[in-house]
């Protein structure tokens, strides 16, 4: 089932100087995926988020979120979404007071609010004024307010922007945990592609308000011959690695836990699968799965295509 559907959506800002933020944009986001909304600055990512939230009304076209129009059925749509804006502006109150209010509005028990405060690691700062929080903790607060009320869809607009590497990693780990534990649909708009590629399995690329590509990361990887990573679970990682490295299309191998992380150009996917399932190696191979793709490379190719 598709959670978000944009059907020829156009959004125009301004009267004298017209800016087309979205131009006949059509895409779909299926449920239970982590989707990356990619594109350069000013491409229409934040506008798309605001349209999904029902903050803006499209000039033409149709938007459906959970099967409803978010501008009209704003209440029933938004209560199922957690939203972290790109530049959230918070009131000057304590973390606890703010989150308690959000919880009350969502009809959520105070114990649930406390649980989320622990989940995002804000326990120590609970009674601090929001004004005094560092950027990393402000992002955690943003995630906390987005998570209150058990959302089915999480919209994260640049969740790791302007963060130091450690905070960035912590936020990313948190998103990974959310994907793993809650199994909710997450849409992330970001520029930090190496990080996104660790979690995303669906991509929408947008440029100047036009949707250039939308689809499963694996499908786009094959379409644009992008370098990609496969994880092969094996009973003998070293032996398998010494054999696979002989193949000239293999760009890298890393032994990780009980398996191998193999980097190849997606054009050679069949060759890799053939060799892994051959009688010589199949005895060592327990499982093969696509892990991720070089999103930077995909981004570059999509940018050129647009």
């Amino acid at each position: 089932m598709d959670i978000v559907v944009f059907d020829n959506v156009t959004k125009i800002f301004g009267k004298s100087k017209v800016i087309k933020a979205l131009d006949n944009a059509s895409f779909r986001i299926p449920s239970k995926v982590v989707a990356g909304l990619l594109g350069p600055n000013g491409s229409g990512k934040t506008t798309s988020f605001k349209l999904i939230m029902g903050f803006l009304k499209p000039n033409s076209g149709k938007i459906s979120v959970f099967g409803k129009d978010p501008w009209i059925d704003e209440y029933s749509v938004r209560r199922r979404i957690g939203y972290l804006p790109e530049k959230p502006v918070y009131p000057y109150v304590s973390v606890y007071k703010f989150l308690k209010h959000i919880g009350k509005m969502q009809g959520v028990d105070i114990r649930e609010v406390e649980r989320i405060i622990r989940l995002v690691g804000l326990e120590e700062y609970k009674f601090f004024n929001i004004r005094g929080l560092s950027r990393g903790y402000l992002q955690r607060l943003g995630l906390a307010q987005a998570l209150i009320g058990d959302p089915e869809l999480l919209l994260l607009d640049e969740p790791t922007a302007n963060l130091d590497p450690l905070s960035r990693k912590q936020i990313l780990d948190l998103i990974k945990d959310l994907k793993k534990e809650l199994g909710i649909t997450i849409i992330i708009a970001t520029h930090i592609l190496p990080e996104l590629q660790e979690v995303a399995d669906y991509v929408v690329y947008i440029n100047k308000g036009r949707i250039i590509e939308a689809g499963k990361l694996e499908d786009l990887t094959h379409k644009y011959f992008v370098h990609t990573y496969y994880y092969v679970e094996t009973s003998d990682p070293r032996k398998l690695a010494s054999r696979i490295i002989m193949e000239e299309y293999v760009r890298g191998i890393e032994v990780r836990d009980n398996g191998l992380l193999i980097k190849i150009n997606s054009a050679y996917k069949e060759d890799l699968l053939n060799i892994l399932t051959s009688s010589e190696l199949s005895v060592y191979v327990k499982n093969i799965k696509h892990v991720t793709t070089e999103l930077g490379e995909l981004y570059e190719k999509l940018s050129r295509a647009s």
Binding site: M53, Y75, V89, Y90, Q145
Partner: peptide
């Protein structure tokens, strides 16, 4: 104008 409203609307409050 500054965007506080988005946080409140995101809680399910209608405009």
């Amino acid at each position: 104008n500054e965007g506080h409203i988005q946080l409140y609307l995101a809680t399910g409050l209608s405009r």
